[in-house]
Write a protein that binds this DNA or RNA. Structure first.
Length: 390
DNA sequence: CACGCGTGGAC
DNA sequence: TGTCCAAGCGT
């Protein structure tokens, strides 16, 4: 439970006015600008924060889990995952002792699966080195897998009350506008300025709530498009608002065009099961299960797809028919899965191309960690009736 | 430092 | 339908 507000809401000076008299002697205009932001934002947060499930707990593990899931992922997507995952792995110790396959299955559909692998490894380290409880400082947290500067600051401040700064996409946008920070995302000078601002501002009462106030403000009011400046608690301090530059700060990041990736996917039924393979740990969908897949040229004929799958499986498979194509847009990949029903002279148990092969009935496949793209491919294959009674 | 890494929501 | 993008991290 978040601590109730005890802070008297600070009065913000009106836009363009010098700092008030009691501060003027020892406080620079820059410091006064900072002070005019902290109090109003914290006060606004107390009145307007959303009732999110991880704001109802003080369990550092639960808060940690929320921060990892929220990386590059929207709140509404995370909520059901967080609740299910926490019910299944209620403590760091429970998570640490679970098989990685179970952890990846719990992450199924959430994306960026290395987060789950790092979370699992970090839980094991926490058990081995810290008796199952997270260390309480950002500096220590930063040593654990999956903790970068942001997540270390978030967990240290929110779960442990450390005056640890954080900068995420929201905070970068909020600061860029209020303090007119120039530069493209990734620019070294820009990042340094943002972190310096975060470091200065977090000092004071309730650092965790203040950090959340910054992010909440960015997510709901100081939005990328159509920001709600008329409802903004720090409008009077916002340089971009005063100068009419809200829409141009921060500059949008330049995105690379997604590369095309086409995979031939083997749908190989046998005795009520299909053949599954586990992908390599690194790279796209690392460590997840799939219907065995091999990269092909986008315009490759089925004969070439058959050859690629035969090589990957170490068995000369026969093409029994095409079942369609699954197309998915990833951030940096334009993914096509060409589903090919195959059969073979024998059933492979292991191959060089895959870490592990397994024949699974549909019910067992439910429990495997799998990407959404592959889940869709599986649904299509089953819908096409490749298994009797399926 | 640039790139690889997923997904679903918003418009 | 297309496009952008959201509470980043690892290499």
């Amino acid at each position: 439970m978040s601590s109730p507000s005890k802070a008297a809401p600070a009065r913000k000076p009106r836009a363009g006015r010098p700092p008030s008299a009691p501060l003027a002697a020892t406080v620079t205009p820059a410091q006064a600008h900072l002070a005019s932001v902290r109090g109003p934002l914290l006060d606004w947060y107390d009145r307007n924060k959303r009732d999110l499930p991880w704001r109802r707990t003080r369990d550092s593990y639960a808060i940690w889990l929320s921060e990892v899931m929220l990386q590059q992922t929207q709140v509404s997507t995370v909520i059901p995952y967080w609740e299910r995952f926490l019910a299944r792995f209620p403590t760091a110790r429970a998570l640490a002792s679970a098989p990685l396959d179970d952890v990846l299955a719990g992450w199924k559909g959430l994306g960026y699966y290395s987060r789950a692998r790092n979370l699992h490894r970090a839980a094991q380290e926490v058990v081995a080195r810290f008796g199952g409880t997270l260390p309480s400082t950002a500096a220590e947290l930063l040593e654990l897998p999956g903790f970068g500067r942001y997540t270390a600051g978030a967990v240290a401040s929110i779960a442990f009350g450390e005056e640890a700064p954080l900068v995420d996409g929201n905070v970068a946008r909020v600061f860029s506008r209020i303090f007119e920070v120039e530069g493209l995302p990734g620019d070294r000078q820009r990042e340094a300025t943002l972190w310096a601002l975060a470091t200065a501002l977090v000092k004071g009462e309730r650092p965790g709530d203040f950090n959340q106030a910054l992010m909440e403000h960015g997510a709901t009011t100081c939005r990328p498009e159509n920001p709600l400046c008329l409802l903004c608690p720090v409008r009077g301090a916002c340089v971009a608002f005063r100068k009419g530059r809200v829409d141009e700060l921060p500059p949008a990041k330049v995105r690379a065009t997604p590369k095309k990736l086409t995979l031939a996917v083997a749908v190989w039924p046998h005795a009520g099961t299909l053949l599954f393979a586990r992908r390599a740990d690194a790279g796209l969908f690392g460590g997840l299960w799939e219907l065995p897949a091999a990269e092909i040229a986008d315009d490759a004929p089925d004969s070439e797809a058959r050859a690629r799958l035969s090589a990957a499986l170490g068995v000369d498979v026969t093409l029994e028919g095409a079942l369609g194509t699954v197309k998915r847009q990833l951030t940096h990949r334009d993914l096509s899965l060409r589903l090919l029903r195959v059969s073979g002279p024998r059933r492979p148990a292991s191959t060089p191309a895959f870490q592990e092969l397994r024949w699974c009935a549909p019910d067992d496949a439910e429990k495997l960690g799998m990407s959404t793209a592959m889940q869709r491919a599986l649904d299509i294959a089953l819908g096409a009736g490749v298994l009797p009674g399926g």
